[in-house]
């Protein structure tokens, strides 16, 4: 049962990778890499049970966090062209534009 889901996840990973490689626009690629990370988290959780050592399930949590933070960073970069903009809107002395 777990073996089947590992195989299914691996195929899903390969398909997502295909989209990340030949996605027509950049945003397809961003989305594909994000869902690639999510599937990696799932695969990591599955692998623990598949190999009989589910002790390292917390590693999957770390992956999920990193994936989330990286996606936020990428989107922030796309929107603002800088990491140093706070996401909370506040009045600045020098307004934009």
């Amino acid at each position: 049962m777990i073996g089947v889901s590992v195989i299914a996840l691996t195929i899903a990973l390969a398909l997502t990778l295909l989209r990340a490689l030949m996605g027509p626009t950049l945003y397809d690629q961003v989305l594909a890499v994000n869902s690639f990370g999510t599937k990696t988290v799932l695969l990591l959780g599955m692998l623990g049970f598949f190999m009989g050592r589910p002790d390292f399930l917390d590693l999957a949590i770390l992956y999920a966090l990193i994936n989330f933070v990286a996606t936020i960073a990428v989107l922030k970069f796309v929107r603002y062209r800088s990491f140093q903009v706070t996401l909370v809107r506040k009045d600045r002395k020098k307004g934009e534009g």
Binding site: Q29, V33, F36, L47
Partner: peptide, 24 residues
């Protein structure tokens, strides 16, 4: 930009592979 995204995917993949090799 695509290269940076793929590099992220690459290191996630290799990290998964390290887990398979028991190098958590």
């Amino acid at each position: 930009f695509a290269i940076v995204m793929l590099a992220g995917a690459y290191s996630l993949l290799s990290a998964t592979w390290f887990v398979v090799l028991d190098a958590v």
